[in-house]
Design a protein around this nucleic acid. Sequence first.
DNA 1: TGCTCATGTGAGCGGCGCTAACATCCGATC
DNA 2: GATCGGATGTTAGCGCCGCTCACATGAGCA
Lengths: 201, 201
Amino acid sequence: MSSERKSYHHGNLREALLETAFSLVDAEGAEGLSMRALARETGVSSAAPFRHFADKQRLLQAVAEKASEDLQQKLDEATRDRDDALTQFRAMTVAYVRFAAEHPNLFRLVQSIPSVSGAFLGEFNDERRLKLIALIYEGQNAGLIPDADPELIALSSEALTHGLARMIVDRHPRVRDLSSEDARKLALAATQLLQSGIGLS
Amino acid sequence: MSSERKSYHHGNLREALLETAFSLVDAEGAEGLSMRALARETGVSSAAPFRHFADKQRLLQAVAEKASEDLQQKLDEATRDRDDALTQFRAMTVAYVRFAAEHPNLFRLVQSIPSVSGAFLGEFNDERRLKLIALIYEGQNAGLIPDADPELIALSSEALTHGLARMIVDRHPRVRDLSSEDARKLALAATQLLQSGIGLS
DNA sequence: TGCTCATGTGAGCGGCGCTAACATCCGATC
DNA sequence: GATCGGATGTTAGCGCCGCTCACATGAGCA
């Protein structure tokens, strides 16, 4: 696994550490990762990583940022070429839940670092959120949507999405070990349900 | 903080360790807890805790079980004297979300130990879930509820509840630092919304 | 060619989880 | 009441950890 190296200097150690750490976290979770094991795996001394990351927390943050970019890219791909906000929202939910099912360890890491998840929820996604809220507002004017706070409606939609993803990574009884395809179906079905309402009243 | 002790033996070390650990986790999270610090705080040697807990994981599991019982008790109180399943479900959601807002560290710990959260979601709550599903089934026969899989409807309800709680403990932008009262309002509003449907279609 | 400084190494500090060998004393038994 | 075995405490210590410091190396620029 650990590749040999002829010269004293590595050449691209920072990237190498990041990639190795990313793979290790994805496969085994962030809890088990140690700086020393990471250095060993990368073929350098145990002090070398600290030339590139001030401490373990920064390393994990960098991994989380990379994972967050991956997730963001999946969301971008999923919503590309869909112009109405509702379709975008549903495609986003599906992509989000699928990412959680496929990379639970990375998903957990992203969520566990507020600065990363905060940035993730801030940048691009806020734009989409505002579009969704605008759509909700229109729907209310047309009498199609109940007269609740549009912010609340958007938040509840987010909560359903996040809740499905979290139930999967937290291994709740009926959604543990879901295949990517089952995760897709579940996310689609649940968002459809939210739109129509479950009707208990 | 650490109380003195006259005799060689502590007398009730296991409970003392559990209580101290519970408080420390509640206040500062499970990540920062160390067995040595816990022993120090309790006023015993660093090896003593291992007479009562095989390893750190077991200690954390015991703390998680205690937290899970507390949560369960809150849910029991919230649903007591409410006979219809729908009212119970909404009261449960409120209590669940409030617990997450008031004890995010304990909530996270419970969710991070599958055996504990699995048991939590299994025992009493399965009974309530079955009642909810029965109600959904009746509602469908009466034409009040869309004709989706009752299991899916129940699962989506759970997801909304869990998602709200998780967004709070994960410190998502619009729900971080929610007061207990705000958490209550949010949970109530969101469940109402789910019932009526957000109407986008 | 020679200097500088980013980037590597090795040794080591204090804290960790956990174990082993030994100390204490509670309480069952006579 | 004395005895003594086992539950429960202690001290010492192993290996791993995050992290630091003094020093080594060598790439790139003057």
